[in-house]
Design a protein around this nucleic acid. Structure first.
Length: 266
DNA sequence: CGTCCCACCTGATTGC
DNA sequence: TGCAATCAGGTGGGAC
């Protein structure tokens, strides 16, 4: 579910309620979403103070400190939600973790499909590729044009670039006029640069609109995003292209449903 | 090593 | 109505 714009929106919201709080209690009720054993997370986190909230790609990092500083790393998978709310609120179904704060609020983690993950330490993050909002045009073009994989597969590969998922990959490819199945090393410099710009622009626009809510996504205060109303291809298969009115096609690329315009994307 | 595909889950929707 | 098949914003591991 959540891609970079949704995770960024959640992180910005968490920054308004978490930093400075001390965690007074923890309830971890679904081992499947824990990459670190529950006992270890409970021992580390109980009594710790939250120093900051950060994002790396689609990962959310809570910087905690008890004796030493450490990280609690959260990935929301497809359907994960992180919500700050009063402790007295009822817990909805699929609530897998609750972190109680010293001011009567809780940080609640719910995840219907259980693809999300909570863990201590950030070892896996070192493998992440560059952030699409920070990578330079020159570096993006160079990385793209040395690869034999299809461009959409590269955009989805978090080691290549950290933060895009299926929605924003399709939206960026449409805006750049590039076919999802195009081969990275066969793109001209001009078209690779156009894709770099399209990726930035679509992510920045989506962040400005609070992300895309298709069915599950809510921000840290439980509100939906609005960018789904501005999708140009995602979810619009068989509808007319907004540029040329051709019928948008749906295929499978990189194992994912993919929508594109056969006329505008070459 | 680079690339591709499927399993991992639940729930909504579609089609017979 | 009932039930099976298909699809969904994620990744990681194994096959090739």
């Amino acid at each position: 579910m959540p891609e970079l714009p949704e995770v960024e929106t959640i992180v910005r919201g968490l920054r308004r309620c978490l930093p400075g709080r001390r965690i007074t209690g923890v309830a971890l009720t679904q081992p499947r979403v824990l990459r670190t054993p529950a006992i270890a997370i409970e021992a580390a986190v109980t009594g710790a103070r939250i120093q900051s909230v950060e994002r790396r790609g689609k990962f959310i990092l809570l910087r905690l400190r008890k004796h030493e500083p450490f990280w609690l790393v959260i990935h929301l998978g497809m359907t994960g939600q992180l919500i700050c709310e009063p402790a007295a609120n009822p817990h909805p179904p699929h609530t897998h973790a609750l972190f109680e704060m010293d001011n009567g609020t809780v940080l609640r983690y719910t995840d219907i499909r259980q693809f999300g993950r909570l863990e201590l330490a950030a070892a896996r993050l070192v493998k992440l590729g560059p952030d699409p909002l920070e990578i330079s045009e020159a570096e993006f073009v160079q990385r793209l044009r040395t690869r034999a994989a299809r461009v959409k597969a590269l955009l989805l590969d978090q080691h290549f670039l950290a933060g895009l998922g299926n929605i924003y990959a399709d939206e960026a490819l449409f805006r750049a006029g590039v076919r999802p199945a195009a081969i990275g090393r066969r793109l001209s410099r001009l078209r690779a640069a156009r894709l770099w710009r399209a990726v930035r622009e679509v992510l920045e626009e989506a962040i400005a609109h609070g992300g895309s809510s298709i069915s599950d996504y809510l921000d840290s205060e439980g509100r939906a995003g609005a960018f789904q109303e501005r999708h140009r291809v995602y979810g619009r298969a068989d509808e007319p292209c907004l540029n040329c009115a051709s019928r948008l096609r749906r295929t499978i690329v990189a194992g994912r449903g993919t929508t594109y315009c056969p006329r505008c994307q070459v």
